[in-house]
Write a protein that binds this DNA or RNA. Structure first.
Length: 473
RNA sequence: GGCGGUGUAGCCAAGUGGCUAAGGCGGAGGACUGCAAAUCCUCUAUUCCCCGGUUCGAAUCCGGGCGCCGCCUCCA
């Protein structure tokens, strides 16, 4: 059973094989640390985290690198507005980034390189390009000579001719050709800058990714990812710089996530239609957001709606309900389960999950399998408990948690309340049970209603009253 | 204008040549229940934007049209 991934470079789903047997070198374009994150950034981070987890599950050792852009026009502009340095700015938003990523269940990368800490590597790379006659200097700026790289436009599916024809590029007198792009920018007054063979200046945007990817992962990498809006020019330029410098194929797989939309439009800073991640996290738990962000296929656009997020919240609760009930009935750890003991149907559903994931990380289809497992488990829970059905339940719960681990979901155990609080709730339930025995429904219902107000939901089942904490905020 | 993508139920969303068009939410009815909640069962797209074509057979392939989105300038 092989993993297939849609490769933007070839526009085909291809079997994924790393260059070096079990090692995957993966790079994703991170964020610019100039402002708050929004749901678009969150989606990219969550999607690539899921991909990384799945690759690890498949037995690969993944070296994962995601960068921070901490010097560029936007950084400088924002820092000036706030009256701080770009380094202060970076520090602040980097802190927020890690805090929020943790809430989304996004694991740290192996390396989080910053552009400003790799200026030396960047300069080396530009020098290499200059030596080869691919880069040229002009008044302290250095540009990439696009005509020297005939493959330019392959990723975005445009030929050089088409690019020129459709060009809306600003005419920059200094460039030999409008398509050429900056590798190094001469420092203007009071701008942060570094010494270089071309004078004081700072790196262009695209070159940092080439330099850092190659520094940590080598000249050929297995998988390079980013948002669809980065295909052109950013990734196109990355390919051009890297391959022109090394003569080797830069990245074998290019994976691009679809954009988050709101009212049919791309969510973006410039459109002022974004929902910040911090606002979203205020309203919904990180796990709900993560679940939601994975509910569409990663490559499709995702239309943001408050309603969908509410729905996701209920769906998540539904999954936890069945897991918690199973836990109450039987400890997952003490009952031994084997594949053999599971009925065909349950096995098939479990396989469906992995098939879906193997098919270009088809998370919606994978979730469908999980929901079907949930349904099976609930059906079992409805019947009087037998040893055999316990085993099946435990098997299902195990499978759901295993699947959840890959997706970064469903890992919470129990109600996550303090011991004392749990005991208090139990006291209330016991008292209420006495009232119910005496058919004092009004009082019993009041207790239930008041508990519900604080997010504790009672459920009277045949034998006893169960309770759970509502997950939605 | 060029390039890329997309159009599946009230909503979200899989499926890309052939068993009954996944799954979730919502809605209707039923079971359970003192009532709720949770859960289960049944129903909820005779049809996949429209028009042609290929094929024994198409949501799925091809041609044309329409709508929407992204990129071509900073962007996850």
């Amino acid at each position: 059973m092989g993993l297939k991934i849609y490769n933007s470079l070839t526009r085909k789903k291809e079997e994924f094989h790393p260059l070096q047997d079990k090692l995957v070198r993966m790079y994703t374009c991170g964020v610019t640390l100039y402002d708050e994150l929004h749901l678009g950034h969150a989606r990219a981070a969550v999607v690539f985290d899921m991909i990384r987890r799945y690759l690890e599950f498949k037995g690969y050792k993944v070296i994962y690198v995601t960068n921070f852009t901490d010097v560029d026009d936007k950084m400088i502009k924002r820092a000036n507005e706030l009256g701080v340095t770009i380094f202060d700015l970076a520090e602040r938003f980097m802190g927020e980034y890690f805090e929020q990523m943790e809430k989304l269940g996004v694991e740290k990368a192996d390396y989080h390189p910053r552009a400003t800490e790799h200026v030396k590597d960047i300069i080396e790379l530009i020098k290499k390009l200059e030596d080869k006659g691919i880069a040229y200097r002009k008044d302290g700026d250095v540009f990439f000579r696009v005509k020297k790289f005939p493959d330019y436009g392959r990723l975005s599916g445009q030929s050089l001719k088409e690019l020129i024809a459709g060009a809306r590029v600003e005419i920059d007198e200094k460039k030999e050709d409008p398509l050429d792009f900056a590798l190094w920018k001469r420092a203007k007054e009071k701008e942060p800058c570094w010494d270089s063979p071309w004078g004081k200046g700072r790196p262009g945007w695209h070159i940092e990714c080439s330099a850092m990817a190659m520094k940590y992962l080598g000249e050929n990498i297995d998988l390079h990812a980013g948002g669809k809006d980065l295909i052109f020019p950013h990734h196109e330029n990355e390919i051009a710089q890297s391959e022109a410098a090394t003569g080797k194929k830069f990245a074998h797989f290019w994976v691009h996530n679809g954009l988050v939309r709101i009212n049919g439009q791309k969510m973006a800073k410039s459109a002022k239609n974004f929902i910040t991640l911090s606002d979203a996290l205020q309203k919904y738990e990180g796990e709900v957001l993560r679940f939601y962000l994975l509910s569409a296929h990663y490559g499709s656009p995702l239309e943001f709606s408050e309603q969908s997020l509410e729905e996701t919240s209920f769906s998540l609760e539904r999954i936890y309900n069945v897991l918690n009930r199973t836990d109450e009935l039987a400890s997952v750890d003490t009952i031994k389960v084997t594949m053999q003991s599971a009925p065909e149907k349950i096995k098939k559903l479990s396989e469906k999950f992995f098939h879906s994931m193997d098919d270009d990380f088809n998370t919606p289809s994978a979730f469908a399998a999980i929901f079907e497992l949930v349904k099976e488990a609930n059906a079992i829970l409805k019947e009087p408990v037998k040893e055999n059905s316990k085993t099946q339940l435990v098997y299902i719960a195990k499978k759901i948690r295993e699947a959840g681990k890959i997706l970064g979901l469903f890992q919470k155990k129990g109600r996550q309340l303090e011991d004392k609080t749990e005991k208090l709730v139990q006291i209330l339930i016991d008292v209420r049970e006495m009232l119910r025995q005496e058919k004092k429904w009004e009082l019993a219902d009041t207790i239930r209603a008041r508990l519900q107000e604080v997010g504790v939901q009672l459920e009277d089942t045949r034998g006893k009253t169960l309770w759970r904490v509502k997950t939605n905020k």
